[in-house]
């Protein structure tokens, strides 16, 4: 029983996620050392005092072999110590935590748009393959998949904020402060801009896999049973087509994280994406490293979750 569980898909998938995470951590550790210059000054900035330099030398274990340095770093990371921001002079983790609310909310709202727009319209286009509806939906999807999010964002600001004055153009005050949930309106335009290309991709994917599934033999079997066409579409075609969409969730998430960096900058949102851009311009390397680490952990974690869900939905799934 225990053996079965330990060799089960879930355990093996979690194991592979941990291995990937550890390997990724080596790259992220190496990042600081790859930046031109002495790692001490990379971590401390040029204005470091001799005492600080000494502390940092011990902290990074620079007198020891590289693998010891890595383990030291890993030990600190596992305790939640990602170093100190050069710019803010506070722990990196709390700098990131400050941006987390904005970024997580932005990503979640965007995902809702992506699924709400992409899946139903993709289904519609597939069931009306070749009609004007399909051609319009597919053409628009292709168009929006080619649009830079920041460009869409700028025009959304122009129309809805500058001209119509319906929505705020930038910033985001926390929903836990003054204004409460109404502050979510600050995220409406950014999430729409961010959703545009990703909804387009999900739409195309839904359409393509619906069409693919509807050609399968088992759909013919379902029709032969005499169940109603809408039941065939929902129970047999849509359910199987959705598997491809779920499996592609990881891709969408990666694209979304990438584009959020730019979107947060356009809308001046106090999120992690804008933080990383500003940190690059400020040469605040510990923060950059921290953001990459946290994002990769989150990304791999969500991918793990998606794979487990996918396995639940599709009993055929096996680990490669």
């Amino acid at each position: 029983m225990l053996y079965n569980f330990l060799t089960s898909y879930t355990m093996r998938r979690i194991g592979s996620a941990i291995i990937t995470m550890m390997s990724a951590s080596v790259i992220i550790f190496a990042f600081i050392h790859l930046i031109p210059g002495d790692p001490i000054y990379v971590m401390l900035g040029d204005g470091a005092t001799p005492d600080q330099v000494k502390d940092m030398q011990i902290r990074l274990g620079l007198d020891k072999p590289v693998y010891i340095q890595y383990l030291l770093w890993l030990y600190q990371v596992l305790q939640g110590d990602l170093g100190t921001s050069l710019f803010f002079q506070i722990p990196v983790l709390s700098v990131i935590a400050d941006g987390a609310e904005t970024s997580l909310l932005l990503a979640s709202i965007t995902m809702v748009w992506v699924l709400l727009i992409g899946i139903p319209i993709g289904m519609l286009a597939a069931t009306r393959q070749g009609t004007l509806t399909d051609q319009a939906a597919s053409g628009l999807a292709m168009f929006f998949a080619s649009v830079p999010t920041f460009w869409v964002g700028l025009y959304l600001i122009l129309f809805f904020a500058a001209w119509l004055g319906w929505l705020p153009s930038s910033g985001y005050p926390s929903i836990f402060g003054d204004g409460g949930l109404a502050n979510l309106r600050y995220l409406l335009l950014p999430s729409l801009a961010l959703a545009a290309p990703n909804a387009a991709l999900i739409l195309r994917l839904t359409r393509a896999s619906m069409l693919d599934v509807s050609r399968q033999d088992y759909v013919r079997t379902a029709r032969a049973k005499g169940i109603r066409p809408w039941q065939v579409t929902v129970k047999h075609i849509f359910r199987n087509a959705l598997l491809a969409v779920v499996a592609a969730f990881g891709f969408t998430l990666a694209a979304l994280i990438s584009e959020a960096v730019v979107t947060e900058t356009v809308f001046a949102l106090p999120g992690v994406g804008r933080l990383v851009v500003q940190s690059i311009l400020r040469r605040d390397y510990p923060v950059i490293q921290g953001v990459i680490l946290v994002t990769v952990i989150l990304y791999l974690g969500i991918n793990l979750l998606v794979d487990l869900i996918n396995r639940y939905l599709d009993p055929r799934v096996e680990l490669e």
Partner: peptide, 10 residues
């Protein structure tokens, strides 16, 4: 495992 933009920025 690294989202594209994050890797490019790094």
């Amino acid at each position: 495992a690294f989202p594209a933009m994050l890797m490019a920025l790094g």
